[in-house]
Nucleic acid binder design. Structure first.
Lengths: 96, 96
DNA sequence: CTTGCATTTAGATATTTATCTAAATATCAT
DNA sequence: ATGATATTTAGATAAATATCTAAATGCAAG
């Protein structure tokens, strides 16, 4: 359920803030963590959900793991919302 | 927190399905209920969240309460997503 | 190959959420 | 007023979620 995971991911304020941070530039988990007061373990949990939704991608760089925004999926999400509005669009409720 | 309530409302598959049903036409709660197997009480709970997010509006018509999609808020939501993408947009994280 | 740093995983807990049944409220028709 | 229909509210419960601390893993540098 790709759709569901995206909407779920976007439902949490911390995760939306992570996306906002990442839209400035890609950065490692530790640096993202500097923007928050919650534990790194909790953030890691949020990273997981964002990755599951494919809203962010990761790349290991030595001892760091760099997170980047997956812009195209964000665009898809906005499109899904618009589809929810448009009666002519197919009802692709929950496939894949 | 208008933003939060919108994202929250959209996170649930049943609520998104309600929106899809309503985009065809406005209809009373009972008729919406025919599209679902869950209890009317549970649906009422979902209606509440959708109303809180201002994604739907209600109007009493005799003994029926007619639900309608609030199209403009749906559009706003899509816009918010796009904003989440655009580094130049102001960071209106959670005001109002 | 051990020490240090970055990140994730495990396991526990508290809060939130979706759902139910039963009861309450509101409107209409008689 | 009374009874029938439509919807919501109350109260309970089970499942999902966000968070924490502590431990484990992956990598780099001596």
């Amino acid at each position: 359920m790709i759709r569901q995971s995206i909407f779920k991911a976007l439902a949490d304020p911390t995760r939306r803030e992570i996306l906002r941070v990442l839209r400035e530039r890609s950065m490692p988990a530790g640096e993202i963590a500097e923007h928050f007061t919650i534990s790194k373990a909790s953030l890691s949990h949020h990273f997981n959900l964002l990755k599951q939704a494919d809203l962010v991608r990761t790349e290991r760089r030595g001892q760091h793991i760099v997170y980047s925004l997956n812009t195209s999926v964000m665009e898809d999400a906005a499109g899904m919302l618009m589809d929810l509005l448009n009666p002519s669009s197919k009802d692709d409720s929950d496939e894949s």
